[in-house]
Structures are given as structure tokens and as C-alpha cells.
Write a protein that binds this DNA or RNA. Structure first.
Length: 740
DNA sequence: ATTCTACGGCTTTTT
DNA sequence: GCCGTAGAAT
């Protein structure tokens, strides 16, 4: 096919750009994936060998889609494929090849955040550090994202806390190496360190990958950018594609400055702007632009659309989150009944996961089929994690995090005190737990029973390791493991519904390995000129896949409304979008409105709003509540500032909206259905009792009028004792009362 | 060693 | 309001 077919001018420019650095600023819905894939295909057509092309993405989904589309463009006959991968998977492949050079074996395992936290806890405990392990870990991660090993930490001034972090970080890295393990950050960091110090190797990679491409460049953190600079230094062919307005992962170390500074780092870079949006009606883009343009530091660009103006945005105001859910469900059915769109092309977005519950409830009651689009549930389940730990021990029994996880699962009488003793001993002699329990009698203070049980466990792991060594498939290994560990049978014996469900999940794991083995059998072996060498053994590959890829995230169930956080929404599009919980302190988040918040915090919330708006093709609903249950307390809400940033004329206010019944202190609301989208009115931010209300006259919908006698507790959820005129003294929830 | 209970704390979470 | 942790009770 003609690779330039149906491309606009700037898109063509980007596709045809062959050598030298390239920055593609691609607005939402401007066809960026199309540009990247066509460019790859174009380079191949012009004679670049596919294996000389490296394309990096952030998500597995993006990598998979890109692979598929490139393969399609390459056609059936092609035997060579470009290396399209996530940053982390690609790094894992490279790092495994040079594992010994960074103090690892080829069989190293990859720890996830849960393993990380457990390790930090253990170390903080050992070092007698009081600090919150979560905080310590996030500081360590921040160092890793910044590309700094413990010795490279910047200890400016005399922040004693930084010194504590450094010592924990040091110990943490030592423990990882002793366990022959890496965390996600290490995959990049260790590779960067290696390539920085080994010039010969660096040049080898630079020569091999003549073209490097990066998707969602605005989300790169400093280590990732460092890696890119090592693989494709200034002067080479690095093409990055991104949109600074869609940078929403700053809190995870992403650096918008990478995209802003790219033309400076890569002198002579060609800059192409993709500003034509093919997705949304104009009114939606107008609204999105109104919000995003309030950000100060952004690259100048404005999306435009040849599409019609379309419908106005609908502003939906509700009494509380239950009313919101009910109304959203009603509207979704309305869209469907009017033939505007179907369930599958409708999405409901929210800022925090906690909001999903009420929405789910509302959709269920209205019989709207929905699917919760969320992370990696299957492999997060405790029983699956246990099984994975056993599998990892088969490959690498020195992995202490895995060993401690399952040493008493299923229960075999090895308790916390025993584990503590062997851990201490292991630390003292600098060995892994697996090595220590080979001779448990050498550990001080263990009774003979404990020694015996430890030996029994050690023998179990030995059997697993022995079998794992030459297991030809992941399935074979997993089946042996389940049988030997009795994970399934122990759950079945337990007999509770929950245990049986868990046992079934473990059987599902076998389906996962079978699927993996099947795909693996169908994948052709790497071509001989591939210096990346032979792939790791099947079990190891499977483990790498579950830690880096997670669920074989395939089939989004058909015909269902999608519910997700705004973060999860990036990269998707729907005919109709509901932005729920558009309230100050919720969205924008309290963390961005508080006194400690910076301008950048708010800018990121605004980008998140922009991402949400621009997901909508035809209909955009902006929904908010007057009050909402938050952390178990009823809070009065004010409309999000983002609502008032959208020009009023872009909103349509529904007149068939049920008028909210007056909650407590009705005088303070001042926000009624017929006020329209005029949102900047006065709001009383609190339902707290402003003064001592004892003796006040109140009205209750069932009990009638009465006098408050006593306040039982704090906050609006508090119970109040009221002497009612007709029914006597009763204790009622304060929020059901109306002051008279 | 396991199970119960009280208490605090709390956005987002590509890999 | 819910969940995870820490401490006590069985």
C-alpha cells in the first residue's frame, strides 16, 4: 500500500523524515500511532533492516498495538521484525544478556512493588529506622527514576533524612543483588550504569540500532531519557513522539522538561506539530483547550478539527454520589435508546478508584452492563502471588522475598519468630535464606521442631529447583509446583467458598502457562544474526512476562460501558464520555489545591482534565455532586475550577434534572438547578456545626420537628439526640435534619 | 501459630 | 467507609 495514503501534510513530513533527530508534537487524536508505524514501514521500505529499528513504548498495550500494525504494513512475507517493546521489557532483555557485568546471574528475578516494600520494611527494621517504609521506598524510587545509584545521591546541605534514605538504599541494593533480583527501576538504572561505563558495549548497541523511536515521550523520566541518549546520542536517528499536554505521570518521576528540552539536547532536530484532530467535535475541543490553555508552561499548539461543532457539553448536577451514579446510568441508557451510541462506546471516568463503587452500584441497579478497567488484578491476588513466588524460587531459590513469602504457605508451622531468627543469621553471615536453611541447626535458638520443619521446606524447594532446571514448558513446571507445594489441595481442604475460589484461580494459572507455551511454540526462533542471543528457558520467560506484562490483557468484554480512572483513560476514545466527580478537592485533587501544592501539581490536574475531555468523540458529560461521602464523612462539594474555565456557552444545562432535596443547612447551598452553569457562587464548605447547636429547632422527615439535646460525636455523620415534639427522644444522624 | 480487634490513614499507579 | 497493620487474645 501507499504509506502516505490518507496522511495530512505534517504527518507526511514526519513519516518521510529519515535521518537526524525528530520531535513530533502530537496533539490528542492527531494520528500519532499511525505516524510512528508508517514511518517504521517507510524506513524498512527504503532499505533499513528491521532489526536495526528499536521502538520503545510505556505500556504493553501500546507495544502490542504497534507491533501488530507494523507487521500488517510489512506484510505476510516479512521474516524480520523491528524490536518494538516497552522500556522495561527491552531493558530486561538487554540486561539479561549482560547480567554478570552488573553482579547478577542470567536467571535474575524481577521484584514488583510489593516485594520492594517488604524488602524495605525488613531493612528499616534491621537498621532500627523509624521512618515510614512507604516513604523510604518512594524516596529510593525517586532516586532510581532520577538515574542515581546510592553513591550518586545528591546530599545537598545536611538533610539527615537524605542520609537515612541513602543508607537504606545501599542496603536495599545489596539485598537485591544477594537475592539475584532487580526491581523495575533497576532494569533501567543498571543498564544505564553499564552502558555509561562500558564504551565498547555502548558503541555496539548504537551501531546496531540505527533508528530509535519513542512513543509518549512526555512520560519519560530521567533514567529513561539517559538510556535513550546512550542508545541514540545526539547526531543519531532518535525520533520521539509526545504531547506535553498529556503528561500525567510527573508523580512517578516523568519529566515534562524532557520534551520541552529535546530540541536543545538534540540540536538540529526537526520539529513537526500534528494539530489536526480527527476524533472530537469542535465544542469538545474548545472546552478542552479552554482548560489546558490555563497552564503556563506548555509548547504552543492548538488542536483544530474539520468536524462539525457537534452537541454542547452537558453539565449534570446531583445531590450526592448515589444520585450521580443513578443519573449517569439513566443518561447512558438514554444515549443508547436514542441510537446515539452503544454501551461499548461509552465511558465513565473518575479521579480516584474509590469513586467507582457508587458508580458501579448505580449502573448495576439500572442494569447497565459495565466493565471496570483497572490494573493487573489477576496476578495481584494473594494465591497467584504465592504460586508465582514458588515458580520464581524454582528458577532462583536465593530470592529471599519469594522464600519468605511462601515459607509458611500453606501453613507448615514455620512462624514469624523462626523466620526472624534465620533472617538475622543470614544477614550476619551474608547469605541467602535458602543457603541458611540448608543447615538450620547452625542458627542460634531454633528448637529441633523448627529445624526439622525448615529442612522439610528446604527439601521441597530443592525438588522444585531440580525439576525446574529442565522443564520443557512453563505448564509442566507449574503443574509440578502446584502438586508438590499442595497449594491447591490445601485450599480445597479448607473448603470455604473463598478458598475454593482461590483454588480455581490457581487452576487458571495453569491456563495462563498453557496459553504462554502455545504462543511460545508458535513464535519463530530469533534469526541467527540477532546478537541478543538465545531466549531464556520457558519458565523464566513466563515469569518475566508476568512481572513485566502482567495479565494477558486481552479481550475487553464486548458491549459494556467502561469505567476507569482518568489515568487509565489515556490513549483511548469513546463516543460518549462522563467526567464524574468534577468537584474541587476531588478533581483537582486536594493534593493540588492544598497549601503545600505547587503550580505544577495543579498543571498536572489540568492536563488530566484535558486528557479526559479529549477522549470524547461526540458527547461529553461533566458531572458533579453537591455533597459526597468521602473517607466516611459527608463533605459538601464545590464545583471544580475546571468547570468555570470552560466558556459557559459550551454548556447545556439539563432542565429535566431532578431538583436535589435540600440537605442540612439549605441556606448555604445557593446552587440550584435553575442557576445554570454559573458555578462561582458562594458555598459553605462545611456541614460541621458552626456553633453549639444544642437547643436548636430542627425538622426530621419522619419524626417531625424537635429540639437538639445532645451531639454525639464530630462531623456531619455524627449522631444527634433530638427530643421530638410528637415521638419523644430519638438518636438520629445529623444529616437527615433540617434546621428551622 | 493463628485469629481477632482496634487504630490510623488515605490520588493517580504505564513497568 | 474500607483496608492494612500492629498488638493482644486464644
Amino acid at each position: 500500500m501507499d504509506l502516505l495514503e490518507d496522511l495530512n501534510e505534517p504527518q507526511r513530513e514526519a513519516v518521510l523524515h529519515e535521518t537526524g533527530p525528530l520531535l513530533v508534537l502530537s496533539g490528542a487524536g492527531s494520528g500519532k500511532t499511525r505516524v510512528i508505524t508508517r514511518r517504521i514501514a517507510h524506513l524498512i521500505r527504503k532499505g533499513t533492516e528491521p532489526w536495526r529499528i528499536l521502538a520503545m513504548t510505556f505500556t504493553n498495550k501500546a507495544a502490542r498495538e504497534m507491533k501488530e500494525r507494523v507487521a500488517q504494513l510489512q506484510g505476510e512475507g516479512a521474516t524480520e521484525r523491528p524490536f518494538v517493546s516497552t522500556f522495561h521489557s527491552a531493558s530486561a532483555v538487554f540486561l539479561r544478556r549482560h547480567a554478570e557485568a552488573v553482579g547478577l546471574s542470567k536467571a535474575f528475578v524481577i521484584y514488583d512493588d510489593d516485594d520492594q516494600l517488604r524488602l524495605v520494611k525488613r531493612i528499616a527494621n534491621k537498621l532500627g529506622i523509624e521512618a515510614n517504609p512507604r516513604d523510604l521506598l518512594s524516596r529510593i524510587d525517586a532516586e532510581k527514576n532520577g538515574g542515581r545509584l546510592p553513591d550518586q545521591m545528591v546530599l545537598n546541605g545536611n538533610d539527615p533524612r537524605a542520609q537515612v534514605v541513602q543508607s537504606v538504599y545501599r542496603d536495599y541494593q545489596r539485598s537485591l543483588r544477594a537475592a539475584d533480583a532487580v526491581d523495575f527501576g533497576d532494569l533501567l538504572l543498571l543498564l544505564v550504569d553499564l552502558l555509561t561505563n562500558d564504551a565498547e558495549l555502548r558503541v555496539r548497541y548504537q551501531r546496531r540500532y540505527q533508528h530509535v523511536m519513542v512513543d509518549e515521550f512526555q512520560d519519560t523520566n530521567p533514567v529513561q531519557y539517559k538510556l535513550l541518549k546512550l542508545l541514540a546520542p545526539p547526531g543519531s536517528n532518535l525520533a520521539v513522539v509526545g504531547d506535553d499536554d498529556q503528561s500525567i505521570y510527573r508523580w512517578r518521576g516523568a519529566e515534562v522538561d524532557n520534551i520541552l528540552g529535546f530540541p536543545r539536547d538534540y540540536e538540529g532536530a526537526k520539529v513537526v506539530k500534528l494539530e489536526q484532530n480527527y476524533r472530537s467535535d469542535q465544542n469538545i475541543l474548545e472546552a478542552a483547550y479552554a482548560v489546558i490553555s490555563k497552564n503556563r508552561r506548555r509548547l504552543d499548539k492548538k488542536l483544530w478539527s474539520a468536524r462539525p461543532k457537534g452537541e454542547l457539553l452537558q453539565l449534570l448536577l446531583h445531590r450526592d454520589e448515589r444520585a450521580e451514579a443513578q443519573e449517569v446510568a439513566r443518561r447512558i441508557n438514554g444515549l443508547r435508546n436514542e441510537g446515539i451510541t452503544d454501551y461499548a462506546n461509552t465511558a465513565v471516568f473518575y479521579r480516584t478508584n474509590a469513586q467507582s463503587r457508587a458508580l458501579e452500584e448505580g449502573l448495576r441497579l439500572a442494569r447497565v452492563p459495565y466493565t471496570l478497567v483497572s490494573g493487573r488484578s489477576f496476578y495481584d491476588r494473594a494465591e497467584i502471588r504465592d504460586a508465582s513466588s514458588y515458580l520464581r524460587l524454582m528458577v532462583n531459590p536465593k530470592s529471599d522475598a519469594d522464600l519468605t513469602r511462601v515459607i509458611n504457605t500453606p501453613a507448615r508451622g514455620i512462624g514469624d519468630t523462626t523466620v526472624e531468627k534465620i533472617t538475622e543469621h543470614a544477614g550476619a553471615i551474608g547469605r541467602s535464606l535458602y543457603e541458611v536453611i540448608e543447615w538450620p541447626e547452625r542458627v542460634q535458638g531454633l528448637n529441633s521442631g523448627a529445624v526439622k520443619r525448615l529442612l522439610g521446606f528446604r527439601e521441597l524447594v530443592e525438588r522444585l529447583v531440580k525439576f525446574g532446571k529442565d522443564a520443557a514448558t512453563a505448564t509442566e513446571a507449574a503443574k509440578f509446583m502446584l502438586e508438590q507445594t499442595r497449594l491447591v489441595s490445601a485450599l480445597k481442604e479448607e473448603g470455604t467458598d473463598e478458598a475454593i475460589g482461590r483454588a480455581e484461580n490457581l487452576v487458571e494459572l495453569i491456563s495462563a502457562t498453557q496459553e504462554f507455551d502455545k504462543v511460545r511454540a508458535e513464535t519463530p526462533p530469533p534469526s541467527p544474526n540477532d546478537e541478543l542471543g538465545t531466549p531464556p528457558p520457558p519458565l523464566q520467560q513466563f515469569l518475566e512476562q508476568i512481572s513485566l506484562v502482567g495479565e494477558a490483557d486481552g479481550e475487553v468484554p464486548e458491549g459494556r460501558v467502561s469505567l476507569m480512572t482518568l489515568h487509565a483513560a489515556k490513549g483511548l476514545e469513546f463516543d460518549a464520555v462522563f467526567m464524574t466527580g468534577m468537584e474541587e478537592e476531588l478533581f483537582p485533587s486536594r493534593r493540588a489545591t492544598g497549601v503545600e501544592a505547587t503550580e505544577e501539581d495543579m498543571a498536572e490536574e489540568r492536563r488530566l482534565c484535558y486528557v479526559g475531555f479529549t477522549r470524547a468523540r461526540r458527547r461529553l458529560f461533566v458531572s458533579l455532586c453537591q455533597q459526597r461521602m468521602l473517607y466516611g464523612e459527608i463533605k459538601v462539594c464545590r464545583p471544580s475550577r475546571f468547570i468555570s474555565e470552560v466558556p459557559q456557552e459550551l454548556f447545556e444545562f439539563p432542565h429535566d434534572m431532578p431538583v436535589a432535596p435540600r440537605p442540612m443547612k439549605p441556606r448555604s447551598y445557593g446552587y440550584r438547578a435553575d442557576d445554570g452553569p454559573q458555578v462561582d457562587r458562594t458555598y459553605d464548605q462545611s456541614t460541621e456545626f458552626s456553633s453549639d447547636p444544642t437547643g436548636s429547632r430542627v425538622r426530621h422527615s419522619t419524626f417531625g420537628d424537635g429540639t437538639i439535646e445532645k451531639i454525639g460525636g464530630q462531623g456531619p455523620n455524627a449522631k444527634v439526640t433530638v427530643r421530638f415534639d410528637s415521638v419523644g427522644v430519638k438518636s438520629v444522624i445529623a444529616r437527615w435534619l433540617t434546621p428551622l
